[in-house]
Design a protein around this nucleic acid. Structure first.
Lengths: 212, 212
DNA sequence: CGTTGTGAAGGTCTTCACAGCC
DNA sequence: GGCTGTGAAGACCTTCACAACG
């Protein structure tokens, strides 16, 4: 299947999906214009994005919400289930371990890891925290699709290397670091301070524009 | 100052800054090639990005790390301090309230809010949790630069509206929702499930390519 | 000699605008 | 009539490649 969807489109599909789930409580059909308004994009964008999934709209009417949801879930691979491990259970990792959004989208947390002896053996969100040194052991027994790195920046690359060595193909990185991994492994960064700094750029560039 | 930096560049500047902070422990100077390797981008990209800040490199040598850090901080507005409020102190909001990265970059958390009576009045990360109904009152007494929305999706738009009405210009949104705000207000989304779904797209599109 | 700064080329993404269809 | 699907245009972003320079 050479049906590759442009990156920019892929990044919007989860947004559309969520909007459709919301909408489905109120309507069964929706136009590209409506979806665009809710998702905060241009309607031509929506139509072009959806056309990569194959054309499932009806001219003069719009899209059937239920069908479109199904298409999106299929395109994003959400009809399968995925297993997840969380590395590092400090404040953020603990919060993630209890995050209800995993279940809701078919992700199953299979293990938590940390290096802190005070945390190892404790239960968080229904899972026992294991020693990080047991990572390889655990990954040899269970298939893990996604590793979530919630360690301090200093430990992130090491942990990522070990995940990669153990065959994990996807990493969600909360540490404020760029991870270096083979091309075959996909990583996404979710870094609070980077995003804050992008906001401060705009805050300050506005105040610069103020005439003196 | 019509010195506007392209969006794509602005998004990379925080990454460069962090890389330079790391590097500064080991060296005083660095080439675009080196910075590019660490930041995971092309070296021409680095040079072009940095050229928007004005040209501060030395041919044949590279950039002085300390100077470049200073330029980046200035461009991102980090020489000023910013005040932050956190809306919603569930798992995620609580974790954020204790996040050391705020202080490190000059952000000051000035208040936490929640609707849950069991949480109101408790202390988290050295701050007392206030009733969300006191939001307007508080914002009329203190200038707040950035609102961090860590509420459930269902409350996010309401909270955002109230922040905007109270004059907050920047919002960091952890709720899995697209916020609708005036153009003058900047928002950034940091949504775990969106990012996970982008990862699953790649996981599944690979397995599709496997010849049958 | 090594590295920057940048014009030009090449991609990718977004938006327009309208034919085609229900 | 209303809305989709899409070619074409335009905006934006990245990469190349090399002159300029310390």
């Amino acid at each position: 299947m050479t049906n590759s969807i442009p990156t920019a489109t892929v990044a919007r599909l989860p947004v559309y999906l969520r909007c459709l789930v919301d909408m489905s409580e109120r309507q069964t059909t929706c136009s590209s214009e409506q979806l665009a308004a809710v998702a905060g994009v241009n309607s031509a964008q929506v139509r072009k994005d959806l056309s990569y999934l194959g054309s499932h709209g009806v001219r003069g009417v719009g899209y059937t919400i239920a069908d479109l949801q199904e298409q999106l879930r299929r395109a994003l691979g959400l009809h399968k289930g995925y297993s997840v491990v969380i590395l590092g259970v400090g404040n953020l990792g603990s919060a993630l371990a209890s995050y209800p959004g995993f279940d809701a989208w078919g992700f199953q947390v299979v293990a938590l890891f940390d290096v802190d002896p005070a945390r190892i053996g404790t239960m968080i969100g229904g899972h026992e925290v294991r020693a990080l040194s047991d990572l390889e052991q655990t990954l040899s027994n269970v298939t893990v699709d996604i590793g979530i790195v919630a360690t301090p920046a200093s430990a992130a690359q090491d942990v990522a290397d070990r995940l990669v060595a153990a065959g994990v193909r996807s990493i969600l990185n909360f540490a404020p670091t760029v991870l270096h991994v083979p091309d075959s492994v996909k990583t996404r960064r979710l870094d609070v301070s980077t995003q804050l700094q992008i906001l401060t750029y705009h805050l300050q560039s506005e105040s610069e524009d103020t005439p003196g």
